[in-house]
C-alpha cells in the first residue's frame, strides 16, 4: 500500500498540490484522474520520488519515503516499476536490451536466466519476435508494451503508469488497460495510473481520485462514477458537447 499524507507542492508562487491525502491499495488499479494541469503528473512524480514535496509525507507500506537515505531509497526503487507516457525506452538499445537493463544492473542472474525472464515478460505483454528490434521500429502500442515488460521485469511491488493510453487508438488503449489490470491482480501489485481517459476509468478504475486545482475533488470507484452528482466529476466526464448531448438525451428519455 502507498499512502500520501497532506502533500503540498509549490513551484515558486504557484501551489500545484494543496493537501493531498489518499491511499493506493495493492491488487487494485488506483487511478488519478483530472484535467490537464490539475496536478496529476506532479503527484505521480512525488509518489515515485522524482520530486520532493513542499510538505507532507509518502509512505510505502510503513516506510516514510522522504525520510530515507539514498541507499534506502534505491532499495525501495528496486521494488518500483514505471511506465512513462512516451515509454522512455532507450533508443540505442534493442527491445531485449531495454527489458534486460534492470536485470543487468541489479541482479546476479546468468545470461540464460535473464533471457528467460525477458522472454517471459515480453510474452506476458503479448510481444513475440521483437527482441532484436529497436524502439523506433515499433508502433506506439508496442512501445508501451515493451515499457510494461521493462517495468515488471524485476517483479515490482509497486507499478506507476503515467498516461499509459496517450497517443493510442481506443482499441489498443483498452488492451493496455487490461494488461495493466491483469498484471496488477496476478502479482498483487499496488498500481497507480495517471490518466484522463474515461474508458480507463470505467474499465479499470478500482480506486479513483479526481484532482481539481491541486485538491481531491472526488474519490470512489468505477461503479460510483456515473451515480455521483459531484459537479466537478460531471464536468470532467461530460466535457465534450457530444457527451453532453448524449447525457441530455438520456435524461429526456
Amino acid at each position: 500500500m502507498i499512502r500520501a499524507i497532506d502533500i503540498f507542492k509549490s513551484f515558486g508562487e504557484q501551489d500545484v498540490l494543496k493537501g493531498i491525502t489518499t491511499e493506493f491499495y495493492p491488487a487494485q488499479t488506483n487511478l488519478i484522474i483530472g484535467r490537464s494541469g490539475a496536478g496529476k503528473t506532479v503527484l505521480l512524480k512525488l509518489l515515485v520520488g522524482l520530486l520532493a514535496p513542499t510538505s507532507g509525507k509518502v509512505f510505502y507500506d510503513d516506510v516514510d519515503f522522504f525520510a530515507l537515505n539514498k541507499r534506502q531509497v534505491r532499495a525501495i526503487r528496486m521494488k518500483v516499476g514505471m511506465l512513462f507516457q512516451a515509454s522512455a525506452l532507450f533508443d540505442s538499445m534493442t527491445v531485449e536490451q531495454n527489458v534486460r537493463f534492470p536485470l543487468d544492473m541489479f541482479t546476479n542472474m546468468t545470461r540464460k536466466e535473464k533471457l528467460d525472464r525477458v522472454n517471459y515478460c515480453l510474452e506476458r505483454v503479448n510481444l513475440h519476435e521483437v527482441n532484436d528490434k529497436f524502439p523506433s521500429e515499433l508502433s506506439g502500442g508496442m512501445q508501451k508494451r515493451v515499457g510494461i515488460a521493462r517495468a515488471i521485469v524485476l517483479k515490482p511491488k509497486y507499478l506507476f503508469c503515467d498516461e499509459p493510453n496517450s497517443g493510442l487508438d481506443p482499441k489498443t488503449a483498452i488492451l493496455i488497460d487490461e494488461l495493466i489490470r491483469s498484471i496488477t491482480m496476478e502479482n498483487n501489485i499496488t498500481t497507480v495510473v495517471n490518466t484522463h481517459d474515461m474508458n480507463s476509468v470505467m474499465g479499470i478504475g478500482d480506486n479513483v481520485i479526481l484532482l481539481y486545482n491541486g485538491e481531491i475533488a472526488w474519490r470512489g470507484d468505477r461503479d460510483q462514477v456515473m451515480e455521483s452528482d459531484n459537479e466537478v466529476l460531471q464536468n470532467f466526464i461530460f466535457a465534450s458537447p457530444f457527451l453532453q448531448q448524449l447525457r441530455d438525451s438520456a435524461i429526456k428519455k
Binding site: 515515485v48 520520488g49 522524482l50 534505491r74 532499495a75 526503487r77 528496486m78 518500483v80 516499476g81 514505471m82 512513462f84 507516457q85 512516451a86 522512455a88 532507450f90 533508443d91 537493463f101 534492470p102 544492473m105 541489479f106 524485476l154 506507476f160
Partner: peptide, 14 residues
C-alpha cells in the same frame, strides 16, 4: 527530455 534519466532513476540507477 525523453524521460530516460527519470526511468533509470526509478529503477534505482545512480
Amino acid at each position: 527530455q525523453k524521460e530516460h534519466i527519470d526511468a533509470m532513476e526509478i529503477m534505482g540507477v545512480n
